[in-house]
């Protein structure tokens, strides 16, 4: 079997340049005949090669939509984007559908939350794997099958030569998610987007999948965008953490820094409301109110109606502040407030 060169010679491999560079990305969804809602609003962030970045926030924060837009997978005719998505120096937003297709699964891959429904039920695991390989590489069926077996082995699926013949419903949830990961990583992409990959799994299986993802991305130097509402999981997996609220990035910092000393009141509120097994009995702090709906966004700071630190000046629209320490926050009071973190 001749080795396939996974390295694409067309990649610039410029270490100084981020692998992914999202700037002022907005996503609109049609809401009726003439109107539309901006569900993602001017999102800006970079991801370096091999970096692991968490995208956290509650439902309605726009984190999944952001992930899908990076692959051009938003529903056509219903959603559209503005802004630039630079991937390895090229603007994805300006790519044709066929160029995008060569990127998907080859350079950028995505895994989804529901292992039960994310695989085609009437194709075998092997077919779904070889199909990805043969879409991107000239490869014989036999060769692809060999690679599929290796790929399943790499993600810790026992008896891979048997599993390639089986259908998704033969596998448990944990095994399906492993198969999903095998498919996504079959072509050794440069960037993996994982959308809540462990949310539907039991904790002991979640632990296995987290270990697997961490090991593979670090072995292969794959960049990872890990979308999750679970701060515990993100704190384990990700170097950096981007917090989203109501379609905007509100904070972007090294994970440990956010956990110790968040800069945005929403990051702090999220951290505080997670129940901890070590701390008990006292009341859990919660964030009053609810996430505004996309057609009724507050004109100023979107978190202001729920923020306990709101004061004059907060009713103005907030911009992202790039601080001297490299941290990024969307709050004009970031240097006045000392917020509670995971330890305080």
């Amino acid at each position: 079997m001749k080795p396939v060169s996974y390295r694409d010679p067309s990649l610039t491999d410029n270490a100084a340049q981020p692998l992914l560079s999202v700037s002022d990305l907005s996503v609109y969804f049609r809401a009726g005949r003439k109107s539309s809602n901006r569900v993602v609003d001017n999102v800006t962030f970079d991801v370096a090669r091999g970096e692991t970045v968490g995208l956290v926030g509650e439902s309605g924060s726009g984190k999944t939509v952001t992930g899908l837009s990076l692959l051009g997978l938003l529903p056509e005719g219903i959603a559209w984007t503005e802004g630039q998505i630079g991937f390895d120096g090229k603007d994805i937003g300006k790519m044709s559908e066929s160029e995008m297709r060569r990127l998907r699964g080859r350079h950028i891959s995505m895994i989804f939350q529901e292992p039960m429904t994310a695989l085609d039920p009437v194709f075998t695991i092997g077919e779904q794997l070889t199909e990805t390989l043969r879409t991107h590489f000239p490869m014989s069926k036999r060769e692809a099958r060999e690679r599929a077996i290796t790929a399943l082995e790499d993600v810790g699926i026992p008896l891979p030569h048997k599993r390639v013949e089986e259908y998704p419903h033969h596998l448990s949830g944990g095994m399906r998610q492993r198969a999903m990961i095998a498919i996504a990583l079959a072509c050794e992409p440069d960037l993996l987007i994982a959308d809540e990959p462990t949310t539907a799994l039991d904790v002991t299986i979640q632990a296995q999948i987290i270990d697997l993802i961490m090991k593979i991305v670090s072995d292969r130097n794959t960049a990872l965008i890990f979308i999750s509402h679970n701060l515990g999981v993100v704190s384990q997996v990700c170097d950096r953490m981007i917090t989203m609220y109501a379609g905007q990035v509100v904070e972007d910092s090294v994970t440990d820094e956010v956990l110790e000393q968040p800069l945005h009141p929403y990051s702090s509120g999220l951290l505080a409301s997670v129940p901890r097994k070590s701390v008990s009995s006292s009341r859990l702090p919660s964030i009053p109110g609810r996430v505004p709906s996309p057609d009724a966004m507050p004109p100023g700071c979107r978190f202001e109606p729920r923020c306990t630190f709101a004061q004059a000046g907060c009713e103005a629209a907030q911009v992202l502040h790039r601080r001297a320490d490299g941290r990024v926050v969307r709050c004009h009071r970031h240097d006045q407030l000392t917020l509670k973190g995971a330890l305080t």
């Binding site: 632990a207 296995q208 987290i210 515990g232 994970t255 097994k277």
Partner: peptide
């Protein structure tokens, strides 16, 4: 207990996580 990740900075995370 060990499998459930807590939102803590790396330095405070258990290093010997038991994965079943």
């Amino acid at each position: 207990m060990s499998a459930e990740p807590e939102a803590l900075p790396r330095r405070l995370q258990k290093q010997d996580r038991l994965v079943l």
